[in-house]
Design a protein around this nucleic acid. Structure first.
Length: 778
DNA sequence: TGTGAGTTGATTTTT
DNA sequence: TCAACTCACA
């Protein structure tokens, strides 16, 4: 098995420090790696996987769990370099659980084609459950209920065992709503995110033989960011490490920032009690930041009580002093940051991608975005309106969800009248009544609409038409995903409605749908063969905002501090260090929560390699009103005497004037639409080689391609003749059959096929594009 | 039934 | 500020 290790891997081992090496070479038994920020943790983990493989351990027996897809992807690509093509399971907790649950769905009362509901879907279901229970919402918000249920699930408290704390109104309500909500989920053959973990934990507890089999299968388990595990995740990992306790966890208690999601700091703080024979390795040397930055971070985190003391140090240069700036208003803050970036980029000192701006809450990104646009700086915002959250995408995916799982009422409600087809609210209510009385899924209720009381004839016809349309879609359920999506777009008339619309917004939606088709095709290429709809839906449900970050592109990055974990940038700006925002309002009067906020700032600070600026504004717009602010108390905990403090910002020349004289105006061409999550500026393309601009990033993980760029690409593509020039919805002419419309496409390259709908007499035909005599009609 | 105007009410972080 | 929701009207 030594052959599994690339020469690169063996050489690389030599460059590891003694501490790193001792972790890498540990094989059997529990291992705890306490890794400070920038200490080369990922390097250790990936080298350890390579080392295990080198020791002759089968790749199938190794399981590496992360929290984000991004972290998993990073790990995968680095392991790939050290030990190519080894089928080690690397992925997120949720992804792993989704897979396990597919194989054992029946054990928890689901069937294998269950749906994964995202926040939006589960919220709708929750509201329905709240209505079921006729809860008075005057003192409790659905969101509070959702959080309580989520907390319960993360702590493995099932609906039947839930009891709210005495005297609290919320507790009593949750006691009623939680079981109702869970019943609805099960009836819909669906799970929410928290269920993925809870169901698997339950399954492992209640089925010893399944547990033992999996324990045997996954002999070597690695968990990244262990400080962020909650009880459910802990239970899962624990259950898989009983017979073979070769559990290696890495983490840093000081970077635990997901307490609100049920993360339990005790999991890592007490790992040594759990596994008395554990080997502990501390990685304290930082390879990322300057001494100046690291000292600030260290000073701050020392104010936390609940932690493991750690001595952070670095051999890096002293570096520039950390800046602490006070601005009159948020506007000045944003302007100055943009100006600093422009100045550095124009001086040739930095590139846009060297900069990152962090904030506590997403709402704060707006001013920065605005300033960057004004200064014509390309940026990408990690988050915004995420691709898979856009209405049109969710609509089309809902069709797919319903095809895959006909019991998913949430999906049906979403599409039964989208696009509008004359099935209004009153009709839907009647169908829901009927479904409830006969305990049927909504789709089945719609099928027997004839039996529904008081339904107008017109409505009846509309519902029947919908059902017939849906059944036609069902016929292609096992086709390539791209073909299914194409069918949905044409059969549902979703595409037609948008095409006929004048609204610019709808044209953008069309372009986004083309993107979805592309994403589907890319999925098909990665998963040859048919019948992968379920898997496609799983992937789209489990991708997150952070995964949409393009590390390749030359843009300033804007993100929350939570999203920043695991990343690093040469220059970091942390804005709005103000009481109420950082620490956040909701953590007031709760020392544990304040400590978590402090850790959050610690994470932000330690992302910086060379330069760091913290800032706050005296006045900030909030809820539409400007209000005076109070600087964050955390700022008083920093070593201010060695930092560069400044509040005389107005003396700086207005960068906009400078920029006007130096750069050609291109603003007119820029979209000022807020829905646009990123944009390119031609002036910066000179630092970005043409080639890299053309390189296509897989959509499933990019999500930030703009509709405009896609349209442009489409136009360019039209001139060449190749199977790839045919697009969904295109009008084509066939020598024999005449004019028709492409209603679906599938396959790649010479094998690419199209289904074309001709005049009624001819019907539908399927062609291999390479050989068919199809001509696009202008 | 569908649309559009007007009102309200809520604002964390993410798989 | 802005999005979601309600309500009135066509």
């Amino acid at each position: 098995m030594e052959a599994a290790l690339s020469p690169q891997a063996r050489n690389a081992h030599q460059s590891l420090t003694a501490a790193q090496l001792s972790a890498v070479e540990h094989v059997d038994g529990p291992l705890l790696i306490l890794a400070g920020p920038g200490s080369g943790k990922t390097r250790v983990v990936t080298h350890r996987i390579a080392h295990l493989l080198g020791e002759g351990i089968s790749a199938r027996q190794i399981l590496a769990l992360t929290f984000t897809n991004k972290a998993a992807a990073e790990m995968r690509s680095r392991v790939e370099k050290l030990a190519p093509r080894q089928p080690v399971w690397m992925g997120t907790f949720h992804g792993f659980c989704a897979r396990l649950l597919r194989l054992n769905a029946a054990l928890v009362g689901l069937s294998e084609n269950y749906s994964i509901y995202d926040m939006d879907d589960s919220h709708k279901l929750l509201v329905a459950a709240i209505e079921d229970e006729r809860v008075d919402l005057s003192h409790v918000t659905p969101d509070a209920i959702r959080q309580a249920i989520g907390w319960a699930k993360n702590n493995l408290i099932t609906p039947d065992r839930y009891t709210g704390s005495k005297g609290r109104q919320l507790g009593g309500i949750v006691e009623r709503v939680y079981p109702a909500y869970q019943r609805r989920l099960l009836r819909a053959n669906a799970v929410d995110f928290d269920d993925l973990l809870m169901h698997v934990a339950t399954l492992l507890r209640e089925n010893p033989e399944v547990r033992a089999k999996l324990d045997e299968r996954y002999r070597y388990i690695l968990v990244d960011e262990y400080q962020d595990t909650n009880l459910a995740q802990y239970a899962i990992v624990r259950a898989l490490s009983i017979d073979h306790p070769n559990l290696a966890v890495t983490g840093d208690p000081d970077q635990s920032i997901y307490g609100w999601r049920g993360a339990n700091l005790s999991n890592i703080l007490e790992f040594e009690k759990d596994f008395p024979s554990v080997k502990v390795v501390r990685l304290e040397q930082n390879y990322r930041s300057t001494k100046a930055i690291l000292r600030v971070a260290d000073q701050l985190i020392c104010h936390n009580v609940r932690r493991k003391k750690k001595q952070l140090f670095t051999d890096n240069a002293e570096g520039a002093a950390v800046r602490l700036n006070c601005y009159p208003t948020q506007r000045d803050e944003a302007d100055d940051i943009a100006a600093q970036i422009v100045t550095a980029v124009h001086a040739g000192k930095r590139r846009p991608r060297d900069f990152a701006v962090f904030y506590r809450i997403n709402a704060l990104s707006r001013q920065i975005e605005h300033a960057l646009r004004e200064h014509v700086i390309p940026y990408q915002i990690v988050n915004g309106v995420e691709f898979f959250q856009r209405k049109e995408i969710k609509d089309v995916l809902a069709y797919l969800h319903l095809i895959n799982n006909p019991r998913s009422d949430v999906a049906l409600l979403r599409i039964i009248n989208t696009p509008t087809r004359g099935i209004g609210k009153s009709t839907v209510v009647k169908l829901q009544d009927h479904a409830r009385k006969n305990s049927l899924p909504l789709l089945d209720a719609a099928r027997e609409a004839g039996l529904v009381e008081g339904l107008a004839k017109k409505s009846l016809v509309a519902v029947a038409k919908f059902v017939a349309m849906f059944d036609r879609l069902g016929e292609v359920a096992t086709a390539h995903v791209e073909a299914i999506v194409g069918r949905v777009l044409s059969e549902s008339e979703y595409e037609e409605v948008l095409t006929n619309s004048e609204a610019e917004e709808d044209q953008e939606r069309l372009a986004n749908l083309q993107e979805l088709l592309t994403a589907a095709r890319e999925f098909d290429m990665r998963n040859p063969g048919q019948g992968h709809l379920e898997q496609f839906l799983e992937e789209t449900s489990l991708v997150a905002d952070t995964d949409a970050w393009e590390s390749e592109s030359d843009k300033v990055t804007l993100m929350t501090m939570h999203a920043a974990k695991g990343l690093e940038f040469p220059v970091v700006f942390i804005i709005a260090c103000e009481q109420g925002l950082l620490p956040h309002e909701r953590s007031r009067n709760d020392e544990e929560k304040v400590e978590e906020e402090r850790r959050l700032l610690f994470v932000g600070i330690t992302r910086a390699e060379e330069e760091l600026q913290l800032s706050y504004a005296d006045y900030r717009m909030f809820r539409g009103q400007a209000a005076p602010t109070i600087p964050s108390p955390f700022l008083m905990e920093l070593p201010r005497d060695e930092m560069q403090l400044s509040s005389s910002i107005s003396s700086r020349p207005r960068a906009r004037d400078w920029e006007e004289s130096q750069l050609p105006r291109v603003e007119a061409e820029l979209s000022h639409d807020d829905g646009d999550v990123s944009f390119d500026v031609d002036d910066f393309s000179q630092v970005e080689p043409e080639e890299s601009k053309k390189k296509k990033v897989p959509l499933l993980v990019s999500g930030v391609t703009t509709a405009a760029s896609l349209l442009a690409e489409q136009e360019n593509g039209l001139r060449r003749v190749s199977p790839s020039m045919f697009k969904h919805g295109m009008t084509v002419e066939h020598r024999e059959y005449g004019i028709g419309t492409i209603i679906s496409l599938s396959g790649e390259g010479p094998k690419r096929r199209a289904t074309v709908r001709f005049a009624a007499a001819t019907g539908e035909k399927s062609f291999v594009l390479m050989h068919a005599n199809l001509q696009p009609v202008e």
